[in-house]
Simulated assay, not measured.
Amino acid sequence: MPKYVMLPPIDDDIREWAAKMREELPSLDVVIVEDEADAAQELTDADAAYGWVAPEVLPGVERLSLLQNPFAGPPVGWYYPELAEHAVVVSNPRGIYSDHIAHHILMYMLALSRGLPYYAEAQAQGRWDNRARKRGYVDLTEATVLINGVGGIGAEAARLCAAFGCRVIGVDPRPAYEIEGEIIDPSELDARLPQADFRVTAVPHTPEPEFSWHAAR
Rank of each mutant, 00 (worst) to 15 (best):
P194Y: 06
I96L: 07
L106N: 13
A176F: 05
R133Q: 12
S27F: 12
L67N: 06
G149R: 01
P75M: 11
G154Q: 03
E62M: 08
E182A: 13
E178K: 11
A157T: 10
P59W: 09
V150W: 01
R114V: 08
G60K: 10
A18W: 01
V89N: 01
Y118N: 15
S113D: 02
Y97S: 14
Q125C: 15
D185A: 11
E156K: 13
S65F: 10
V76P: 03
H205Y: 14
Q41L: 15
E42D: 14
Y119K: 09
Y137N: 06
A18F: 00
P209C: 09
A120L: 15
S98N: 12
P209F: 11
D35I: 14
P55K: 11
V61G: 11
R199K: 13
A191L: 08
W52T: 10
V89T: 14
I147D: 01
E182F: 06
V88Y: 04
P175I: 00
C161G: 14
G151D: 01
V150A: 00
G115K: 03
P26M: 07
E210K: 15
A122L: 06
L25F: 14
E23Q: 13
G115A: 04
P186L: 05
Y119M: 11
A162K: 14
A163C: 09
D197L: 09
V138P: 00
E16T: 12
V200M: 12
A158F: 03
W52M: 09
S187E: 09
S212P: 01
N92R: 02
V88M: 07
A19T: 11
S98R: 10
G73W: 03
R167L: 05
S91R: 05
A39K: 06
D13F: 14
D45C: 07
Y97R: 08
V88D: 03
A37G: 07
L28N: 02
H205D: 15
L67T: 04
V31Q: 02
V31K: 03
E121M: 10
R15W: 07
D13S: 12
D38V: 02
D12P: 00
A132Y: 00
Q125V: 14
V88L: 08
G154C: 03
W78Q: 02
D13I: 12
E42L: 13
H205M: 14
